[in-house]
């Protein structure tokens, strides 16, 4: 016997007390971030916009697992990554469904996983519970119904630009990102309501980049439209889902008939972003 009975009991008791103390939270927000830091959230109650969902659901609950380089299914839900890895991105478990399909919560895999709906692979989220109350899920559904706008990026942009200049605030996929094939839709978000009459394939172009030495651009047919319920977001649907390869999306921001907001404000310059689509292993 290595230890006496008394010493053993003391040691077990010590196990209960040696974990150390929890932090007192001084100077931190409700997500444990220093108040006023870049990652600090707000104390606003949950509402149907990404910033609020991030602060009330993704950051305090989901990022306990879905964070970092080894996040489950490659899904990172921190504030910097959640939008680009959710909206318009095929789920890893059921690739035929997008994690978030703007305008359609019933076809958005994140909603199915949060609800524990039939057809999901694996368990309901958050894994092992407690599961989100239906009221919280309904708020997320409403955000998706509204077109799943990137409000956090827009808020950042509007702070930076004082809300006056019409600017592109976010894309999915992100510029330089690598996403799994097939890619069925691309999302471009702006800070102002867009003039719907200017959303067309003359102002929005999608091209495949020839990866050979020529780096030639081959235009691809597409359909572009404002997101249902959110006139600040353009949904680009390639006629044929994008397979493995490199692609570039361009937005014409100057010249006659260029994309503009409802107040005729233009981007002032053409905008473009590129990304790669990779085959599923």
């Amino acid at each position: 016997m290595l230890w006496s009975g008394g010493a053993r009991r003391l040691a077990v008791l010590a196990t209960l007390t040696c974990a150390g103390c929890a932090g007192n939270g001084a100077g931190l927000d409700q997500n444990g971030q220093p108040i006023g830091s870049e990652g600090s959230g707000s104390n606003e109650p949950l509402s149907a916009n990404l910033q609020s969902i991030q602060d009330n659901v993704f950051t305090p609950i989901c990022t306990r697992c879905h964070i970092g380089a080894s996040a489950p299914e490659g899904l990172r839900l921190d504030a910097a990554d959640s939008y680009s890895l959710l909206v318009g991105v095929p789920s890893a478990e059921v690739p035929s469904l997008l994690r978030v399909m703007p305008g359609n919560p019933d076809e958005s895999y994140i909603v199915l996983k949060l609800q524990g709906s039939p057809g999901i692979v694996g368990g309901q989220m958050p894994l092992g519970g407690p599961y989100l109350p239906q009221a919280s899920i309904d708020v997320i559904r409403q955000w998706i119904t509204d077109g799943a706008p990137n409000s956090s990026a827009m808020q950042t942009a509007s702070r930076r630009e004082d809300g006056q200049t019409f600017i592109l605030t976010g894309t999915a996929p992100l510029d330089g990102a690598r996403v799994p094939a097939p890619l069925r839709q691309i999302i471009v978000a702006f800070n102002h309501e867009i003039d719907a009459s200017l959303v067309n394939d003359a102002n929005i172009t999608l091209e495949r980049i020839d990866t050979s030495d020529t780096q030639a651009l081959r235009p691809l047919p597409l359909r572009a439209a404002l997101a249902t319920g959110d006139p600040t977001v353009i949904i680009i649907l390639p006629r044929i889902p994008l397979g493995p390869g490199s692609y570039r999306v361009s937005v014409r921001g100057v010249g006659g008939g260029a994309l503009a907001d409802v107040n005729a404000g233009t981007l002032g310059a053409d905008r473009a972003f590129a990304f790669a689509v990779a085959a599923l292993p």
Binding site: T15, L16, A22, G23, G25, A26, G32
Partner: peptide, 21 residues
Amino acid sequence: KITSEYLDPNRNVAENAETRW
């Protein structure tokens, strides 16, 4: 089974530790 756990979720930030028993 008795388990005690400690987590410092960000070592660059003070007073943010979590524990679990």
